[in-house]
Design a protein around this nucleic acid. Structure first.
Lengths: 180, 180
DNA sequence: ACAAGATATATCGACTCCGAGGTAGAATAC
DNA sequence: GTATTCTACCTCGGAGTCGATATATCTTGT
């Protein structure tokens, strides 16, 4: 998703792509050569992107990569109907968010944000005692577990606040577009 | 790390462990049977845990798992000197935080928190233009990328605030213990 | 009496991903 | 001159993970 998403912005070569993916997903979870280049080849075989060899501006020749129409379609399908992990795993969610603008239709964008919003609404039950009864943060012995739950709660509220404002804005825009 | 960490609290059987790991890492990133059971066996072979068959309280017989001394040592090594991913990947970091109290020595705990603190200090450069120049949030076209950077900044500040208070508290305690 | 569903453990093939290694050209440092 | 570093691409083996599948017990509903 990150490869097609970045190429939708403008054409890039593999090395540049690698750095951009690393910055995004990121310093957090750098992508290895052994992952990137085979994936590029896979996307090329699936005709999601094309490759043109260009002289390297600095060193070795580059393979400039461009997204195709069917690559754009694929990207939009991934964004419109993301797998569960893209909603529940923060790292993946942030990658999705970084390319959601490529989904163009505000109503579809709002639906994806709503899925995340719904997920964040579930109260976090992180720790349980021997009997399996959930332990509330104030009864936890470990200050780290206490902090973990506090941070989790606080960051969730921050994101929920943004999501609600954004969903409202997108729905207004969708309604306006539809009623014109 | 999660398996040994939970077993350090009290003995558990595989099925229970699976639910606890799923709640923690979690609904976020559930662990599959095909991952859990082979990992338990690997830890047993490495003598990090022992297994006793007990009658199932509800259904089929259980394998009650108990951490050994060398398992506890292994857990502490992982906590004391975590791989880079455990500092930079939020999901992994939260798992580490959930078990950091098993590292007992407040000075060592503070050092781990300091590594995370140092990582969070790096300003996030998430997006770049064609020339590779970083784009500040206010110049981003996509409201989603803008929101992404706002949320990232806000949640980082929340965690930094907690980390600083916690590191201070731990160092006071370490100093106090040393000077007695 | 029987089906369905939760509890509980385990294996296997397929797939993904990484790390280590290799190739090479250009720029910079010493 | 030559060593190092950065750019740029690629492959292979191994490790880890998942999903599907299998087995078995006990409870609950019909």
């Amino acid at each position: 998703m990150a490869i097609l998403g970045f190429l939708r912005d403008f054409p890039l070569h593999g090395y540049d792509l690698k750095n951009r993916v690393a910055s995004l997903a990121g310093h957090v979870r750098p992508v290895a050569d052994g992952t990137l280049y085979p994936t590029i080849k896979k996307l090329e075989d699936a005709e999601c992107l094309t490759r043109r060899t260009a002289p390297g501006s600095v060193a070795a020749p580059r393979h400039m990569l461009e997204i195709t129409q069917s690559g754009t379609d694929q990207l939009r399908r991934w964004l419109r109907d993301p797998e569960a992990g893209f909603i529940t795993d923060d790292n993946k969610w942030y990658v999705l968010l970084a390319f959601l603008h490529h989904l163009e239709n505000p109503r579809e964008q709002a639906l994806v944000l709503a899925r995340r919003r719904e997920f964040l609404d579930q109260p976090a039950q992180l720790f349980f005692d021997e009997q399996g009864v959930p332990i509330p943060p104030e009864r936890l012995d470990s200050p780290f577990r206490k902090g973990l739950m506090q941070i989790h709660r606080s960051t969730n509220l921050t994101e929920i606040d943004w999501l609600d404002r954004q969903i409202g804005e997108l729905n207004r825009r969708a309604g306006f577009t539809a009623s014109r």
